[in-house]
């Protein structure tokens, strides 16, 4: 069981949250210009990192807000929680890129 710190509500049980998968995937500006393969890549393909990973969570049973979580997929350790639209903590992002 994870204890996740919602940026608004504070530490709550994992059961109150839903995971939205990998964070910081930008929607293509012009989807019509993409090939099917590129569109499928945007829709379905995820990094599935082993190690530090940036992902989106939503506090479903609480304030129903989305936010980002930096979580290590091996140890389950949550190293950072930051709001939507915020830049990922730099050290985490670098570590995340290196491991991919």
């Amino acid at each position: 069981m994870l204890l996740i710190s919602c940026p608004w509500c504070g530490a709550r049980d994992e059961t109150e949250f839903s995971c939205g998968g990998e964070a910081h995937i930008a929607r293509p500006a012009d989807p019509n210009a993409l090939s099917d393969a590129e569109w499928a890549d945007y829709l379905f393909m995820r990094k599935n990192t082993r190690g530090p990973y940036l992902e989106r969570w939503v506090h479903t049973a609480g304030c129903r807000r989305w936010f980002n979580v930096a979580r290590d997929t091996v140890t389950n350790e949550i190293t950072a929680v930051y709001k939507m639209g915020a830049k990922p903590p730099r050290a985490r992002a670098k570590a995340s890129r290196r491991k991919r």
Partner: peptide
């Protein structure tokens, strides 16, 4: 106040 789960009910 808090929104949470009580006996698995929101």
């Amino acid at each position: 106040c808090a929104q949470t789960l009580l006996a698995r009910a929101g």
